[in-house]
Design a protein around this nucleic acid. Structure first.
Lengths: 114, 114
DNA sequence: TATATAGTTGCGATATTGCGCAACTATACT
DNA sequence: AGTATAGTTGCGCAATATCGCAACTATATA
């Protein structure tokens, strides 16, 4: 018998997904695919304010998806679980397949829908 | 040059993740892993009202993750992209690894945190 | 037509999220 | 100490999500 109930696992799983349910956080994860980066690096590449990037980073970090390394003035962030990129890529792959197969369905992913 | 901008892809990707960012919807997906099921089946297994299950199903269906098949009184639902289970399993695997390695971090996934 | 069963939808209260803005802390350098 | 650069945090408002409840639609069967 499991120490943790299934319901709790679903809850944790959902929380990980909710961290991933924001386009800016996904872009950050994608930008951290290779090297570690600073808030400033990310802010520039994403064309966002540092405050906003820092807020998103804080969420990723507090939820344990990102790790930090300080070096002087700079704080370099990197992915805590690079394996997560596999899930990221898989989902994106499904997305692209779907877009190419069923163009009409793309409508469903615009801002709103009937 | 891509027809769709990167930002749009991140946006769509985030929307898929936001569909997955609810424990009840994750449980539904997991229960649909094998056979197709009716709202009633799911409601019973999950110990929820049919109305609530139906609402979650509606979200999954409208976002294109579920497909329906009517048979008399019953509507059977099944996964539109079984491949999505790979992403589901991968994420869950990461979750379980993390729980076993760093028990303390589990705290971060409880309801609230400092 | 009437009744039962299966499922859906709208409403409303409550909770959560996103994000700009301004103020704040931390490190480095002169 | 003073200044610059890097990053963080709190606040407030608008937008969105959750979910119970009740009313609704759809199919089947007597």
């Amino acid at each position: 018998m499991p120490r943790r109930s299934e319901k709790q696992i679903y809850e944790m799983h959902a929380q990980v997904c909710s961290v991933l349910s924001n386009p800016k956080r996904l872009e950050i994860i994608n930008l951290l695919r290779g090297d570690e980066q600073t808030v400033g690096d990310l802010a520039e590449k994403m064309d966002l304010t540092k405050a906003n990037v820092s807020q998103q980073i804080a969420i990723l970090r507090h939820k344990g998806l990102l790790l930090a390394r300080r070096e002087g003035q700079h704080i370099y962030y990197h992915l805590a679980f690079p394996k997560m990129l596999k899930a990221y890529d898989l989902l994106r792959e499904i997305l692209m397949e779907r877009l190419s197969k069923q163009g009409a369905m793309a409508q469903r992913f615009r801002k709103e829908q009937p």
